[in-house]
Amino acid sequence: MTEKQTDYGRFVVGEKMELFAEAVKLAVAAKAASTSDQFTWAFTGGSTPQAWYTWAAETGAIPADVMATTHFTVSDERCVPLSSDENNFGNAERKLLAPLGVPVEHRHPWPVAMDPVPAAAAYRETMALINGPQKAYDVCFLGMGDDAHTASFFPGSALLEDDGGELFAAIDTPQKGWRLTITPTGLRTCQLIVVMALGAGKAAALKRVFQGDDSLLDAPSKILETCGDRVVWLVDEAAAAELS
């Protein structure tokens, strides 16, 4: 693997399996360094995280004591039932948390059975009981879409301009409906943010974020510059191909 420091965080380029292992290493190190009474780790949605879940479950890559003592959630969520293949937490639970026997009381899905705004408020209360009101998560995994979105910050999102100082929010996104998500304020409270961007389909978006002239509203992953000192990007050669 190779790496360099950027305004958006540490940028690591490697092969898929190396990057999967590095993601675990980073999270486990963050837990070891944490002084929190409770430790929270938020996963994210998309095909790469699902492949990572399968790999982690099959290889036993995450130490058993970490799985047993960590509180798990997801950084953003679609307003669909937990049983849906489109539910981010549901996928994490089915592919990783349940197979590895994570205690049910350490699994924290967004309350998608509620309407979005009260669901965000209820989730905010749940996480405050675990972390206190000033921290979203200890470790936050994110992805990046080919439109340069991350979490549920899509191009033009009002959250990028004003999130009201909340750590979590419900947002009605154009063409995608309501989403539940960590906010920019919430990201800035996390101890560690790990962004996995793999495959040639991410190359143009990475170019826009790191070297393009796009505004924040046009390339939402640029929000990570506001907390770059705690961000690590895990990127394969195909995704990094357009960067100079």
Rank of each mutant, 00 (worst) to 15 (best):
L100D: 05
L224G: 07
R179N: 06
A120G: 02
F154K: 15
D37V: 15
F11E: 00
A51W: 00
Q38N: 15
Y53A: 00
H149V: 11
P133W: 04
K135V: 05
P103W: 03
N87H: 03
G45E: 04
A98C: 13
A239V: 03
G132L: 06
F141I: 05
K16F: 14
D65I: 10
V80A: 08
E18C: 04
A148G: 13
Y123S: 01
D85F: 00
P220R: 08
D7K: 11
A241V: 06
A122R: 11
G165F: 07
E86Q: 14
S152I: 07
A113L: 05
F168G: 00
W178H: 05
E125M: 02
D7S: 10
A122N: 04
T73V: 06
T48G: 00
A121Y: 01
S84N: 02
P103Y: 04
Q38W: 11
G186M: 10
N88L: 05
D115F: 10
Q38R: 09
E86F: 09
T185K: 12
H108I: 14
V66C: 12
R124M: 07
F72Y: 10
A170F: 04
L198N: 00
R208Y: 13
F153M: 12
M67N: 09
G186H: 05
A42M: 03
E15I: 10
G199D: 08
H71A: 01
K176Q: 08
F20I: 06
A148D: 13
A136R: 06
W41Q: 04
L206T: 13
E242K: 08
T226H: 13
M127N: 06
V28A: 13
C79P: 05
A158N: 09
K16V: 09
V235W: 06
R107G: 01
E3C: 08
T59D: 02
N91E: 09
M17Y: 08
D146E: 14
L234I: 07
P49H: 00
T173Q: 12
T48D: 00
D213M: 15
G156Q: 11
T2E: 11
P99M: 09
R10V: 00
F153I: 09
Y137G: 04
G145D: 03
D85A: 02
L97Y: 08
F39H: 06
Q211T: 12
L97V: 01
G201N: 12
S47P: 03
D214F: 13
S34G: 02
P49V: 00
A42N: 06
V12A: 05
F210D: 08
Q134P: 03
P109S: 08
G177Q: 06
A219L: 13
R107C: 10
